[in-house]
Simulated scan of single mutants.
Amino acid sequence: MTVRHQTRDRSNKMLNMVQSYAARDRIPSLHLSDRMPTPDDIMDISLRAYLPTNIDETLLRSEMTVMIKKTLRDNLEVFKDLKIESHIHHPYQLESSRKSVISDCTPLILLLHADGLSCERGNDAQSARINGSNAWTQLQGLRMSIQEWHKRQFLLQDAYDELYSGQCARDKGTLFHLKIFFNHRSVSSNVKNDFDHNEEFLDCCAQGYILLAAVHIMNIRDLDEKPMDMPSDENERQLYLDRVAYEIADSCFLSVVHVSNKAADVSNETEDTYDYCICKQEKPGQMMIYCDNKHCKKGTWFHLECLCMNEEDVPNGKWYCSPECKMPIHTYKQGKGNRKVVADALTDHKRDYALMVMWRGLNQRIRKDAIRENDGERMIRH
């Protein structure tokens, strides 16, 4: 039921009223302990337990592949007749698929997960109704459990803080540009104003980039075209779909091992590392020349000997070490000031941005699927 009313801060505000029922648990939980964890129990948990393991990485990669295959099957004409797993399996999916049984007898023990303030209000409500006429009016059976209620919102907000900016309105393919192009007026940088629209918009953009990656891998021009190397046998087509999905997942997946190796490489570097010139060696007494591109990634300062240059070859004006560094800095009007964009031929920023949108969108979609499928372990893991 939806009610609209006028307020000072917002002239048209929507309130959602929901009637709730207590349902019997379809999954047995009598083996679980009712003891609340203490601060000492939490302090005893090793920090390593909070870091993702190789098993977590393997599971996440598999879950991403399932979501990618579903996107390809739903949008590419050549895959629409294939039967694939539309949801991620978990041990209790059979029990979760059964119809709920509404409790109409004595109150059951019902956990209410909320933040600290909401749990405090729940306890106050039980205390205020302690003299009720029956168990229902006394709110018996309700057990407050502190848990972060807005996890999905915080993670989505983190994604928008990283990927959504009004300064990128002219950059094609960014979330802000796509919002304007498709006229998604409800999307904003503050996701709590309209969480559902912001979540759907990120999912839509992620699926769009997934399809673009598939079009590139399959070497086709549109979603209805059939690839030249598409097999006719159904089983081989299924393998073809798996191969495309695996390749897309690998392109946007940042491995934990990869990050660990990069961190190890950085930690192994000594403080005496010489970052100048192409030789990366300190040569006292050698004359050096400076590259006038402050974003130079090849050394900034260079020995004349390493460049096969003499002192007479040093120009009076600016000097650049390579054609990439000589590329001009493009400037265009942005509000009251100028925004400078430095051309960088060594990094494909648009590709990195697209991969990050895919990564964020797939993670958000996996979390949503876990809630829909009642997969508690996956809810915690993500």
Rank of each mutant, 00 (worst) to 15 (best):
R243F: 00
V191H: 00
L202V: 00
L304I: 01
L355Y: 11
D229M: 05
N316P: 03
P284C: 03
C119S: 03
M379Q: 14
N16I: 01
M218C: 14
I371D: 12
E57Q: 14
E373R: 14
S11D: 10
F79P: 10
D34G: 10
D348A: 10
N338G: 06
S33I: 11
D352Y: 11
E148C: 10
K70G: 08
N123T: 13
G335Q: 04
D229V: 01
D25E: 13
R10T: 13
H150W: 05
T270G: 12
T65F: 01
R221Q: 09
V18F: 12
D194N: 14
R61W: 10
T300L: 14
R367M: 09
K69P: 03
G299D: 07
C291E: 06
P328N: 06
L139S: 02
L111H: 13
G317N: 09
N75R: 13
C306W: 09
M1D: 12
V256M: 03
D250L: 09
V341L: 13
E236S: 10
D313N: 11
R129F: 04
M356W: 00
R129V: 02
K80W: 00
M43Y: 08
A23H: 08
T2F: 04
R351Q: 15
D115H: 03
T174W: 12
I217W: 02
S186E: 11
